[in-house]
Design a protein around this nucleic acid. Structure first.
Lengths: 173, 173
DNA sequence: ACTGAAAGCTGTCGCGT
DNA sequence: ACGCGACAGCTTTCAGT
C-alpha cells in the first residue's frame, strides 16, 4: 500500500483518457493546461500506480452481430462442502459470458451474457451454461433496450473530502 | 446498410485491439502477419465501418476507491400514459449509474451502479435514485465478489457460417 | 493486394528555469 | 514542478511491383 498524490490535473487526465484513450499527449495537454511532456510523465505514474490498468479498442456489439444480451441469475446447489470453483472456472472459460459476480439477494451469481441472436443464446444456455456443475436453477433477464451504457467511472468522489480509503492512499492537492 | 468484407486478419486485429488498444501497428502486424501499413489501412476501414467505436483507458475501480458495485432492479409505476422518459433521463444524468437496460422478467430496468462505499451507496440510492420519477419499487443486489469481468466481446460467431445478419453485412473470407 | 521507403507526428527524456 | 527542445520511434501515405 503506497501513498499517491493525485491533483486535479491527474483527475482531469484520467477522466479525459477513459473517454478517449487514443488522444495524443499534446491534445490531452491542451485540455488539462499542461505540456505534452508533463502529460507523458503523469500518465506513466498513473499507470505504474495501477490506476490505469490498460487500453482497449471499444467494439460495437450490434455491428459485430451480437444482438442479444442477457443477465442470468444463478443459484447453486447447496451441498455440505462448498464447491464453487468448478462452476466459476467453467464460467470463466466461456467467452460469451462477459461478467460473473457473486451477489447478495436471491441468486448466488449474476452473469452478463452476449450472443448473436436468440437461437444462439438459447443454444448457449442449454448446451454450455446450464451444464456447468452445481447449478440448482437460473433465471434470465433478456435485455430489451439500452438506456445508458458507459465504461466511464465517476471520479467526483476523489476530489470530495470523504473518509480514508483502503489500498492506494490518495493525497488530493 | 453496407456490405463489409471481413477476413481472418481483420478479426485477429479486432481481437488483439480490444485486448490491448495501445499496441502499435507494427506490433499488431507481427501478431497478425501483416505489415504496419496494412494494419493502418485496415484499422481505418474498421473504424469507418463503425466496428471500432473508440478507444478508452481502463481504470481500476478499486484503486480509485470505488469499492461498491450493485445491480438495481427497478419496477416503474403503471399509469395509463407511459411516461418513462423522465426516469430514463434522470438515470442518464447520474454518473454513478454506469448502465441502464430495460429488461424482460419481473423488473422493468436493471441498473449497474458504483459507489465508494456502502455509506455513499446508501446515500446515492436514497437521495438520487429512489427520487427518480415514476419508480414503484427497487430490489438491489450488491456485488460480493468478482469471478470474471471483461470488455472483450466474443468474435468466434463471425467466422462461423450462421444466418444473415442485420446492419452491416459481413463477407468473411 | 501487399511491400517498402519517405515525410510528418508523437512520445519521451535531458536540461534549464 | 514545469516547459522547451531534440531524438527516436511510430503512423500514414504514396509509389512500385
Amino acid at each position: 500500500m503506497s501513498t499517491l498524490s493525485i491533483d486535479r490535473h491527474d483527475l482531469a487526465l484520467l477522466d479525459a483518457l477513459q473517454r478517449s484513450g487514443d488522444a495524443t499527449n499534446a491534445t490531452l495537454g491542451e485540455a488539462v493546461h499542461l505540456s505534452a511532456s508533463q502529460v507523458s510523465r503523469r500518465l506513466q505514474r498513473l499507470q505504474e500506480a495501477g490506476l490505469i490498468t490498460g487500453y482497449a479498442a471499444l467494439l460495437d456489439p450490434a455491428a459485430l452481430g451480437l444482438d442479444v444480451m442477457a443477465f442470468a441469475h444463478v443459484v447453486l446447489e447447496r451441498h455440505g462442502g462448498v464447491r464453487t470453483e468448478a462452476f466459476e472456472d467453467g464460467v470463466a472459460a466461456l467467452p460469451e459470458v462477459l461478467e460473473c459476480f457473486s451477489v447478495s439477494g436471491n441468486a448466488d451469481y449474476v452473469l452478463r451474457i452476449v450472443a448473436p441472436d436468440l437461437a444462439a443464446f438459447s443454444e448457449l444456455m442449454m448446451k454450455r451454461v446450464l451444464r456447468l456443475p452445481g447449478i440448482a436453477n437460473i433465471k434470465t433477464d433478456i435485455v430489451l433496450g439500452k438506456v445508458k451504457q458507459t465504461h466511464v467511472l465517476p471520479l467526483e468522489h476523489i476530489a470530495r473530502p470523504g473518509r480514508p480509503r483502503r489500498g492506494v492512499r490518495f493525497t488530493v492537492s
